[in-house]
């Protein structure tokens, strides 16, 4: 089976203006939340996107979903049989109608459900916005999707306050799936959950992918979760990708020093293994004022003069393994 692209992102830039105070405060600079990122997500695959807070990973997801406007670049949605569609050209009604194809599962299952609506109304909302069918048809569809997400009919009458975090997240998933999207962004969707619930929700997401062939962009800071669900993994640092490869390669043969640092910093549940994180000094730089050259050079133990001066190319170091580091080969 040849991989067909579904989402294609080219040179995506999202810059937020930093304004001075008051009515006439001018733009004093830009936060380069996402700065020139390109990637492709194939149909039915999961791209895991990892990075520390402030790396811009959430912004990438929101830009594709058109929850915020990209500053520059191309976002292409390859429709089944209807050819590519430029997402950035969608406006007004056509954008609203197209939203059924791409959905978001949030991080906080408490904030993302309107506490004043019943579960039925929450799940039905995308359908009602689409004027998808009669009330009866919508009810049937809601019941079907709720069942897939392991919610029972009785639950639909209740309000969100009746549910635990894990159950709420199932409601969020049901809402995301009800309109039959092809692409779902999971933005830290399991990080607020307890371990056992997290495992259950991840399994549910995987089952739904197997059944309906969803394509996921799975944004997380927890590498062990990403390891389980992703086909490929992209590592992001201060608005740019530093490494992109199939999951196995990222986890067993990381090439970028930042990826290595991230991996070693995860405490593993194995007391016999020495916890000796690859020490990263300092903290993630401010994206409003990113470092020159390679953005990681301020914290990288291998940085030299070249890293400081020259931005490394985004290059394929190995089959389907991209990295942005001057010294990737040397460091092995």
């Amino acid at each position: 089976m040849t991989a067909q692209p579904l989402i294609e992102v080219q040179n995506l830039k999202v810059h937020f203006p930093v304004r001075g105070k008051g009515l006439f405060g001018g733009v004093s600079g830009y936060v380069r939340a996402v700065d020139d990122v390109s990637f492709v997500i194939n149909r039915g695959e999961t791209l895991g996107l990892v990075g520390e807070s402030g790396s811009g990973k959430t912004t990438v997801g929101r830009a594709i979903l058109r929850a915020l406007d990209a500053t520059d670049g191309q976002l292409t949605f390859h429709r089944n049989g209807a050819g590519p569609l430029d997402l950035r050209m969608l406006k007004g009604d056509s954008l609203r109608k197209f939203r059924r194809n791409m959905q978001l599962v949030f991080q906080d299952p408490y904030a993302s459900l309107n506490p004043r609506m019943t579960v039925r109304d929450i799940i039905a909302e995308p359908l009602e916005c689409l004027k998808w069918g009669t009330r009866q048809e919508i009810d049937d569809r809601v019941r079907e999707v709720a069942g897939k997400c392991k919610l029972n009919v009785e639950h639909l009458r209740r309000f969100p306050h009746a549910f635990s975090g894990g159950q709420r997240q199932r409601i969020c998933i049901a809402r995301a799936l009800v309109s039959g999207p092809q692409f779902v962004v999971c933005d830290e969707s399991v990080s607020a959950l307890d371990v056992s619930t997290q495992a259950e929700i991840l399994n549910l997401l995987m089952d739904l992918q197997d059944e309906f062939g969803f394509t996921y962009l799975f944004i997380a800071h927890d590498l062990s979760v990403v390891a389980q669900v992703s086909t490929r993994v992209a590592v992001m640092y201060v608005g740019r990708f530093v490494e992109w490869a199939p999951t196995r390669k990222i986890f067993f043969n990381p090439r970028h020093p930042y990826t290595k640092a991230l991996l070693s910093a995860v405490p593993v549940v194995d007391p016999s293994r020495e916890f000796n994180p690859f020490k990263l000094s300092g903290e993630i730089p401010n994206p409003a004022d990113p470092p020159s050259g390679c953005r990681f050079h301020t914290r990288c133990p291998h940085a030299d003069g070249r890293c400081k001066a020259e931005m490394p190319d985004w290059r394929e170091i190995d089959g389907e393994h991209f990295v942005a580091c001057h010294h990737a080969e040397r460091l092995g």
Partner: peptide, 14 residues
């Protein structure tokens, strides 16, 4: 700024 409002917007709500 609440998530559920964004959720509604992403659901295609006017």
């Amino acid at each position: 700024g609440e998530d559920y409002v964004l959720a509604a917007e992403l659901s295609g709500a006017s």
